[in-house]
Every structure is written in C-alpha cells, then in structure tokens.
Design a protein around this nucleic acid. Structure first.
Lengths: 197, 197
DNA sequence: CGCCGAGTTGAACTGAATCAAGAAACGTGG
DNA sequence: CCACGTTTCTTGATTCAGTTCAACTCGGCG
C-alpha cells in the first residue's frame, strides 16, 4: 500500500533540520476519508489545503450538461486545494472527493502561517509549490492547445505511469479532454501498432 | 495611447505608502522595444520578469509542425515571464515578443528581493500575483476541457474585450485553440444569429 | 501602383463525439 | 462462495464540429 507521511515528505523536499515541525504537526488535523467522500463542493468556499498521505483524491468540475472534467489527481505526496477560492474567498466552482480510501492532512491559513513563522524554509517550500503548480498548468494548456488525443494520452502515461493503473480509465479520459470511448480507441490503436511492429 | 506606470500600478494594487519604491524603481531597467522584438526565445533560460507599462506582448510556443500557440497576451499593467524556466533554471519552451511597440520594466531575482526587503507588502503582492496566475490557468484548462470553440470565444470576448480589438484575429484563434478559419466562421455564425433576432 | 499579410468563404475531409449495445470486472450481501 | 447489480470498458455505426486546402477580397503601405 502507498503511504507518504508529511514528515517524510518534508525531509525529502525541504531543506530543514529533521522533524522541525513535529510539535505543530502533532496538533494538526488528520482526516481518514472513505472512497466517495467529499472534501469540497461547488459553491462552498475552500478554506483548507489538503496533503495526501495515502490514497487518491480527484479535483474536478461538473458542467451544465452534467459532465465531469478532472483538473487534477492527487495521490500520496500531493497537495490539493482550490487556490482561487481559498485565496480570494470566492465560492469554488470545483469538487474534491476521494477515489480511494485516503488519509489527508488538513491545513488552514493559520497552520501555514504558524509553520512559516516556525521555519522560514516552509515559506520557501510553499513558494516552490506555487511555482511547480504554475509550470504544470501551463504545460497542460500548451498540450491541450497543440496535441492530439493520442499525443496527450502518451504524455499522460509518461508523466504519471502509476496513475494510469489506479485511476478508472474514463476519468483519465476526462482529464485528457476526450470521451471514454475515445480513449478506449486510442489505446486499441496504439496496442495494435505496437503489436505489428 | 494606453499607458500604466509601475508606480501607478502599485498604488492601485498594493496597500503601500505612496511612492515607497521610487528609489529602487529609478535604478531599474526600463526597455523600449519595437513590434516584433523578442524578450525570450525557446531554449534560453528566462532570467527576467517583465512588467508592461505600455504596448502589448505575447507569450507563446511553436510546435514541431511550426504552429504557434499563444499562452498569454500581456497588455499594459500585466506581468509576463516563464516561471518554470526562471524559477527552476530550466531552458524555456516558450517565446515572448512584442505585438506592438512597448515599454517594459525588467525585473531580475535580485530586484524582487530588494523590493521585498524594502517593503514586505511587495512580497504579499507577489504572492497575490502567483495565486491570480494559478486561478487564471486553471479556469482556462477547465474551459478547454468543457467548452466548444464558440463558447471559448464568447468567454474570451467577455474577459478581454479590449484585446479582441488590438490582437490580430488569427492569434486570438491560436489562444483559443482553434484555426483562424474556425474563428472566422464562429464569428460569422454569431453575427448572423444576432442579426436575425 | 503592385505587393503582402489578414480575414473570409467554400468544399472536401477527418478526428473525435455520440448513441446504442454488449462483455468483462467488481463488490456486496445473502 | 455464488448471485446480483453496478460500474467500467469495448466495439460498431453514425454524426458533427472543426480542420485543411485553395481561392478570393480587402486594406495598408512601400
């Protein structure tokens, strides 16, 4: 089973003395949620950030025709939140729910400030996260603008090989901006091409 | 003619004592660039952020087939930079050039640090910019995933009414992820529908 | 003038969506 | 452990939004 404690994450990703945050972390809220449980619904104001220690979340919208569009998958070691909603205090247009039973750490603004006061390095980490997020979104836009369904799928598999195995295929399709049937065909086509070779 | 000094921008957008930054600002590089001039090319590492005081820049990629894909337009009052490249020191996949003769302020990391030291409020502003950028990118992804060419066009017109008038139509098409011919038809269709009503 | 880039239009084409049906895999309760 | 319903995935037939290609118009500008 996949698991990554926030502490382990910090030791890997921030340049910090070991266990700096232990005191704060101990007081922080950890939630165990079941497959299908919601952490955020359209219309609510998002007041938390979530760090996934184990399990898998999805962050998505539902349009007027009832179709869902996945903006992000968050397996262990990832953060999710609607930054627009939480930062600007606007009602969110998005949902967050669990694709698998999951264990998440819940941050509110206050926690973040406390952690930053405690260790400026945490602010640095936070800044890096914002920048990583921007690169990611930007590359995805570029891909949506320039690549075919097949190219986008190949890119997805290359970038998130593990997710392909854990996420239902129709949700990957939604992430890629194609229909489930479309993705199924793309895969068949690729398989047969690889076979012939 | 459109013009917005950085000073005026700060007075509007940051909660600061008037002219706090004057000393730093005076030492900062201001560039006057001509239509068609480049500020960043694919393969270079982006070491600057640009604030547009007047004119109009575009931020875009060129794919293997030679097609350009516009990620962002930057008229006066906007920042542009490749945050992935500048933050992570990676060669950029993008270009920045001028659609109109423009006047831009050039920031490097050092300037940003100095300004932040001088006034922590500048750090706050910077943070707000990052969050705004993320919301923007996220909403655009959502739109690309869920909306038709026509819907994306209407959204663009609503969000950037002025840009529609200043940017050549084929570049708007590129921003929307459709062909110039496609956009032309969408507009004709809309015009005829409005006329009939 | 004559050229050139920008925009438009038409006709043919195509990648991907839709609709409909069936097969496989999965989990839950009896 | 089986039986059942539900969800996931696949496949085929058809349709459609948007592309491609090519020709033509228009306005600016040397």
């Amino acid at each position: 089973m996949h698991y990554l404690s926030f502490n382990a994450y910090l030791n890997e990703n921030a340049d910090l003395p070991q266990d700096t945050f232990a005191p704060v972390l101990d007081r922080m809220k950890r939630m165990e949620i079941k497959k299908g449980d919601f952490l955020l619904r359209q219309g609510e104001i998002c007041t938390y950030s979530f760090f996934v220690e184990s399990g898998l979340l999805k962050y998505y919208s539902i349009d007027e025709k009832g179709k869902t569009h996945v903006l992000q998958f968050a397996p262990e070691g990832w953060f999710v939140t609607d930054r627009e909603s939480s930062f600007f205090n606007r009602p969110s247009s998005y949902f967050i729910d669990a694709l698998e039973d999951s264990s998440v750490l819940v941050f509110n603004e206050n926690d973040v400030c406390q952690l930053t006061d405690l260790q400026p390095q945490f602010g640095v980490l936070n800044n890096r996260l914002l920048h990583r997020h921007i690169s990611q979104l930007q590359n995805r836009i570029n891909l949506l603008l320039s690549a075919s369904a097949e190219e986008r799928y190949l890119e997805f598999v290359k970038t998130y090989p593990d997710l392909m195995l854990r996420v239902p295929q129709h949700l990957v399709a939604s992430y890629l901006g194609i229909t489930p049937e479309g993705l199924s065909r793309v895969r068949r086509e690729l398989a047969s091409r690889n076979f012939k070779k």
